[in-house]
């Protein structure tokens, strides 16, 4: 199987869906002529032309609202946020209009929009550019939220997202864009709402998603080699809909849980997971559910310190040892 980057995988998904469905348009700041702020959309303008690959002004509320309106008439816009952090200036369009229009119209209107872009810390760009809003987004019934960790997942999930008739928010990661992984040349899709056990183990389950999957897999190696601890890593891949069954099956096997997430702790995705695990698998737990999150402060700029604010393999190892102590 060819090895391609996470960035290329997303680009291939876009190109395939643009080819398949003439109603798909890609829109965002610098996506066309500039070839993408993070080069995800590189080459798409040349291939599909300016009607399909559309540069917007710096006007997130305007162009995302425009995408929502266009989607009501059957366009399938794939909107790029240069950073998901900028969702705050389009919050009303994303979470009042896209999330609610189906409901408030009594099911008469669909909003098949995809909003995608990176949502992560770890690049020393400070608090304004490091938000991870998956918990905020997923708090809104009517929307779907996807956070892929690998090239393979990113491609298959984005294709499903574009074909979905509900609004899907797709949260990528600038640090993963260059990571290579095996991606088949033949077409495939991955259904939303299906977790993936990225590593099997017997002593403890790490429930995680996004870049924290990569940290957790590295930590699991160390734990196996240095501590003889066998860790299972469950990658949620999609936050909403949530594949809680795969999580619970793992918990029933290992009886110990650590949630690892690049979220601020208060009312995070992990908070919801911990609630559901204790509610549905209480008798299977041999100890309290543990969690490793981002240190609870706005994202610090200072490069070496930001690494320690976020989950990282070293912190995951420590958290697993604490959970098993």
């Amino acid at each position: 199987m060819p090895q391609i980057t996470y960035r290329e995988a997303i680009r291939h998904a876009l190109a395939e869906e643009l080819t398949r469905d003439p109603n798909v348009v890609v829109m965002g700041e610098e996506v066309a002529q500039f070839n993408g702020a993070y080069k995800v959309t590189e080459g798409l303008l040349a291939k599909f032309g300016p009607d399909r690959i559309v540069d917007t002004p710096i006007s997130e509320a305007g162009f995302i609202g425009l995408g929502v309106g266009a989607s009501m008439l059957g366009i399938r816009p794939v909107m790029e946020l240069m950073f998901w952090s900028f969702y705050s200036v389009a919050f009303d369009q994303i979470l009042n209009n896209a999330a609610n229009v189906r409901y408030m119209s009594g099911g008469q209107i669909n909003c098949p929009i995809v909003i995608r872009g990176p949502a992560n810390g770890g690049t020393n760009v400070g608090a304004t550019h490091s938000h991870t809003p998956e918990n905020v987004l997923a708090n809104h019934p009517g929307v779907k939220v996807v956070v892929p960790s690998t090239a393979y997942d990113a491609k298959g999930l984005l294709k499903s997202a574009i074909r979905d008739n509900d609004p899907v928010f797709f949260l990528e990661n600038t640090i993963l864009y260059g990571d290579k992984g095996e991606v088949p040349e033949a077409e495939y899709v991955i259904p939303l709402g299906k977790a993936d056990v990225k590593r099997t183990g017997t002593d403890l389950t790490i429930v995680t998603y996004g870049r924290c999957v990569i940290h957790s897999l590295k930590a699991a190696e160390t734990l196996e080699k240095e501590h003889d601890i066998s860790v299972e890593v469950v990658d949620l891949r999609t936050i909403r809909p949530l594949d809680i069954d795969t999580v619970l099956a793992s918990v029933r096997k290992t009886h110990r849980v650590l949630i690892v997430e690049e979220q601020k702790p208060f009312a995070s995705v992990g908070t919801q997971l911990a609630y559901m695990i204790q509610r549905e698998a209480f008798d299977d737990l041999d100890g309290p559910i543990h969690r490793l999150a981002t240190v609870d402060a706005p994202a610090i700029y200072s490069p070496p310190v930001e690494t320690e604010q976020l989950p990282n393999p070293g912190r995951v190892v420590k958290a697993v040892l604490a959970a098993l102590a």
Binding site: R102, Y103, S105, G106, G107, N110, P141, G142, K144, S160, R163, D164, N165, D166, P191, L192, G193, K194, A195, T238, R240, P241, L242, D243, I244, D245, Q272, M276
Partner: peptide, 22 residues
């Protein structure tokens, strides 16, 4: 909880898996 998702209103055509409601 009707009319929230197109998919939950069209269960026969649903492609995603997992829980949509909590």
């Amino acid at each position: 909880q009707k009319d929230v998702y197109w998919e939950s209103d069209h269960p026969a055509e649903r492609k995603s898996e997992g829980r949509l409601f909590f």
